[in-house]
Amino acid sequence: MKFTGNTIFITGGTSGIGRALAEALHQRGNKVIVGGRRRAHLDEIVAANPGIDAIQLDVADPVSVEQVAAKLIVDYPNLNVLINNAGIMQVDNADQRLDDALMTATVETNLVGPMRLTSALIDHLKTKPDAVIAYTTSVLAFVPLAVTAVYSATKAALHSYILSQRFLLQESRVRVLEIAPPWVRTDLMNSREAEQAMPLDQFINETLVVLDSGADEVLVDAGKMMRGNVGPTEHEFVNGFNAQMKAVFIG
């Protein structure tokens, strides 16, 4: 991915990985626009980072997505990078009756939203040099966390979609990237103080190095073991991982 001179739209850009990535790319000479649901948070990041713009967006709302996509094309005609980062993660108890509202919101936000926004911008991006569509998935796309089964499933589905889209766009100008973080210290699952999670600034610094390398799949070292879990030992690995994490989240 080219690191300077881009016009970049980042969803979920007001906190956590999205905000840190937005600020890092802004500092490297890109025009950055962040999207998010809460106006106060958008105003705060704009005030703290002169030059960053913000647009209110709910990726789970198809009307909001269409309106924002149209506005981006008109107001930022040089837009060439879309980073689909917005996501929600909650304990969902797949061994019990699922909360339908939680399940629907997770699928709409984490899976349908990125697909819908990319669809609305894809024809525009095909016309731009150095165009990139990036998605923030998770190492849980490869090794599900049982207590967040719906979240993990949305990330696995998004990974599958990325593989298909990358194949279909391989003869175009558009590169399709997947950023698959390990556990990072953010507000997701109240992980800001979690000792086992990766510090956010370290994650961003390592991610930028991988992005600069030209890789399609952006993995930091801490996530590689999870990504490498394939083959006949998959179930044993997943069960061992979840036995460890059950003690962390449930006790």
Rank of each mutant, 00 (worst) to 15 (best):
D58M: 09
I17Y: 12
R19L: 15
A69E: 04
V210C: 08
K224P: 02
A54M: 06
P182M: 13
L102R: 11
N84I: 03
L72Y: 09
A20G: 04
L82Y: 10
G231W: 10
I179M: 15
V220Y: 04
A153V: 00
A40N: 08
M103K: 05
V147Y: 12
N6I: 12
V74Y: 09
R39Q: 15
A146N: 04
I88A: 08
L140C: 07
A157Y: 02
R166S: 14
P129N: 02
L111W: 01
A222L: 00
T14P: 07
A215F: 12
A141Y: 12
A194F: 03
K155C: 07
E217K: 10
E108N: 11
I55W: 09
V91P: 03
A146R: 10
P232S: 13
D61H: 13
K31N: 05
Q244E: 04
V176W: 11
N85K: 09
V174W: 04
A243K: 07
S191M: 09
A54N: 12
R173Q: 14
A47W: 02
I250N: 05
I250H: 14
L169K: 14
G87E: 11
L57Y: 08
R19T: 04
R166L: 13
M245Y: 03
L169Y: 04
G35R: 15
Q202F: 00
D92E: 05
Q165R: 15
L208W: 05
G36I: 07
T127D: 01
G87R: 02
T109M: 00
P182Q: 03
E195V: 12
